Simulated scan of single mutants.
Amino acid sequence: MLRSLAVILIPLLVIIWVFTRTPDEPQVDPVDWRPAVADARSGAGYPVLAPVEVPTDWKPVKARYVDRGGQWVGSTQAAGNRWELGFRSGDDIYMAVNQSDEPGKDAYIGSVTRSSHPDGTSTIDGQTWQRRVSQDGRTRSLVRAVGGSTAVVVADTGYPALESFAQTLRTS
């Protein structure tokens, strides 16, 4: 009886182990973000923010630009010229810069910042950014107008790290 039970239980335990374990680190392949910056800067019609340099332990994980009316995420259509660049820091924190010149500025900000609300201001390199925080307090954002577009810098971290990232951003 014990052998019969072992014949059933051992494969069952192996199957449970295989299908319930989680990988230690998700595999995220880096993307080449510089061509996307060039595309955005040539087509956007507004000054595109991007870092000149990033720390060596940061991994670029998202870089995309689409013209107004083009296909954005999934099957949505971009309401404006839209730019997004995201990095995963060495501390596994996702930080991104997003820009668009779409007409519904408040809807755009809400979609990028997880329906955040104002939380003060920060001055970075002489520019005033509006601080925003999501309803659950997890996501912090910095928002300002940049040459006819709305720029949003967003991360799941505190404002000091977010402000440091924003300091790396330039329009050329």
Results as ranks from 00 to 15, higher is better:
residue 2 L to Q: 08
residue 2 L to Y: 10
residue 3 R to Q: 10
residue 3 R to P: 05
residue 4 S to W: 11
residue 4 S to T: 09
residue 4 S to G: 14
residue 7 V to A: 15
residue 7 V to F: 12
residue 8 I to T: 11
residue 8 I to N: 03
residue 9 L to Y: 05
residue 10 I to Y: 07
residue 10 I to D: 04
residue 11 P to I: 08
residue 13 L to Q: 06
residue 16 I to V: 14
residue 19 F to K: 10
residue 21 R to W: 08
residue 21 R to N: 08
residue 22 T to A: 12
residue 24 D to K: 13
residue 25 E to D: 10
residue 26 P to W: 08
residue 27 Q to T: 12
residue 29 D to C: 02
residue 30 P to E: 10
residue 33 W to F: 14
residue 34 R to N: 10
residue 34 R to M: 08
residue 36 A to L: 05
residue 40 A to N: 01
residue 41 R to W: 06
residue 44 A to D: 05
residue 45 G to F: 06
residue 46 Y to G: 00
residue 47 P to M: 05
residue 48 V to M: 02
residue 49 L to S: 04
residue 51 P to E: 04
residue 52 V to F: 05
residue 52 V to L: 13
residue 52 V to N: 09
residue 54 V to N: 05
residue 58 W to R: 03
residue 59 K to L: 15
residue 60 P to Q: 11
residue 61 V to I: 15
residue 62 K to T: 11
residue 63 A to D: 02
residue 63 A to S: 12
residue 65 Y to D: 00
residue 65 Y to N: 00
residue 66 V to Q: 12
residue 67 D to K: 13
residue 68 R to E: 09
residue 70 G to D: 14
residue 71 Q to S: 11
residue 71 Q to C: 02
residue 74 G to T: 00
residue 74 G to E: 00
residue 75 S to C: 03
residue 75 S to V: 09
residue 76 T to S: 14
residue 76 T to Y: 10
residue 77 Q to R: 15
residue 77 Q to T: 15
residue 77 Q to S: 13
residue 77 Q to A: 07
residue 79 A to V: 06
residue 80 G to P: 02
residue 80 G to L: 02
residue 80 G to T: 01
residue 81 N to W: 02
residue 83 W to Y: 11
residue 84 E to P: 01
residue 84 E to Y: 03
residue 84 E to V: 14
residue 86 G to H: 06
residue 86 G to S: 15
residue 86 G to N: 06
residue 87 F to P: 01
residue 89 S to K: 09
residue 91 D to M: 08
residue 93 I to M: 07
residue 95 M to P: 03
residue 97 V to N: 02
residue 98 N to R: 11
residue 100 S to I: 00
residue 103 P to V: 09
residue 107 A to S: 12
residue 110 G to C: 03
residue 111 S to H: 03
residue 112 V to Q: 00
residue 113 T to R: 00
residue 114 R to H: 12
residue 117 H to F: 09
residue 119 D to I: 05
residue 120 G to H: 07
residue 120 G to Y: 04
residue 120 G to I: 08
residue 123 T to G: 04
residue 124 I to P: 01
residue 128 T to D: 11
residue 128 T to P: 05
residue 131 R to M: 09
residue 132 R to M: 14
residue 132 R to W: 04
residue 133 V to K: 12
residue 134 S to P: 07
residue 134 S to Q: 07
residue 134 S to W: 08
residue 135 Q to T: 13
residue 135 Q to Y: 04
residue 136 D to Y: 07
residue 137 G to N: 08
residue 137 G to M: 08
residue 138 R to E: 12
residue 139 T to C: 01
residue 140 R to Q: 14
residue 140 R to N: 15
residue 140 R to F: 08
residue 142 L to M: 04
residue 142 L to S: 00
residue 143 V to S: 01
residue 144 R to S: 04
residue 144 R to F: 02
residue 144 R to G: 06
residue 145 A to D: 15
residue 146 V to A: 05
residue 147 G to I: 03
residue 148 G to Q: 10
residue 149 S to A: 15
residue 150 T to D: 01
residue 150 T to E: 01
residue 150 T to H: 00
residue 153 V to Q: 04
residue 153 V to C: 05
residue 154 V to P: 02
residue 154 V to H: 02
residue 158 G to R: 11
residue 159 Y to L: 13
residue 159 Y to W: 11
residue 159 Y to S: 09
residue 159 Y to C: 06
residue 160 P to G: 09
residue 160 P to H: 11
residue 163 E to G: 06
residue 164 S to M: 06
residue 164 S to D: 15
residue 165 F to T: 02
residue 166 A to M: 03
residue 167 Q to H: 12
residue 168 T to N: 04
residue 168 T to D: 04
residue 169 L to M: 06
residue 170 R to D: 10
residue 170 R to N: 11
residue 171 T to R: 11
